[in-house]
Simulated assay, not measured.
Amino acid sequence: MKNDFEEKMADIMIGEAVTALLDEEVAISWAALTDRLRSAIEHETDEDRIRAGLRAIEEVRREMRLRDGEKSGLGRAAGPTEQKLH
């Protein structure tokens, strides 16, 4: 049950981070998203949101590795932090 809550909260935090980047008209990249999530939990006091934020960062990193693996199979040189999501 707790994992479901953390997973939903992580998804919410990713959505909040993406929305903030869009509102600021910042190019959305893996690096920008990860930085935004780190910033979000830096001053957070709610333990549930901190755990969810850490989980969200891990999800983004996992996706970065997965995408990088797919790209490297195609012979592209751009790293995952260089890729734009939007």
Rank of each mutant, 00 (worst) to 15 (best):
M13E: 04
L85M: 05
D48C: 07
S39A: 15
G15E: 05
A52P: 04
P80C: 07
M9P: 05
A40Q: 06
I14C: 04
R55Q: 13
A17S: 12
D11K: 07
L85S: 02
T81A: 15
T45A: 13
K8M: 08
L22C: 14
I12P: 11
R67A: 07
R51T: 05
R65E: 12
T34E: 07
D46N: 14
R76K: 12
V26Y: 10
T34L: 09
E82W: 08
W30F: 15
A56K: 00
A10V: 03
R51F: 07
D68A: 12
H43F: 13
E82F: 10
L33T: 03
L37H: 02
K8Y: 06
E24K: 09
A52H: 01
I41W: 02
E7K: 11
I12S: 12
F5R: 09
D35Q: 05
A32H: 02
L54C: 12
D46V: 08
M64I: 04
E42P: 08
M9F: 04
R62L: 06
E7C: 09
G15L: 02
R36C: 03
G79W: 04
R65N: 14
T45C: 14
S72M: 14
L33E: 00
E47T: 09
V18K: 03
A27F: 14
R76H: 14
K2V: 06
I14S: 00
A52F: 01
A78H: 11
A20V: 08
K71D: 09
A17D: 00
G79E: 09
E24R: 09
R62G: 12
L21F: 05
K8V: 06
S72G: 10
S39F: 13
S29Y: 03
G15D: 04
G73R: 06
V26P: 09
E59L: 13
R38E: 10
S72V: 14
E82A: 05
H43I: 04
W30L: 02
G69F: 02
E58V: 04
E63M: 03
I14A: 01
G53V: 03
K8R: 11
E24S: 14
E82T: 04
R65S: 14
E24V: 05
E47Y: 11
E47K: 15
F5H: 09
T81L: 07
M64K: 06
M64Y: 04
H43G: 08
G15Q: 03
K8E: 07
E63A: 02
L22K: 15
I28A: 02
N3A: 11
R76S: 09
A78V: 11
S39M: 13
R65D: 13
R67M: 09
L22W: 15
H86V: 13
I14K: 03
L85Q: 00
R67V: 08
A27D: 15
A31F: 04
E44K: 00
H86K: 12
M1E: 07
S39V: 08
E42S: 14
D35P: 04
Q83N: 12
E59G: 11
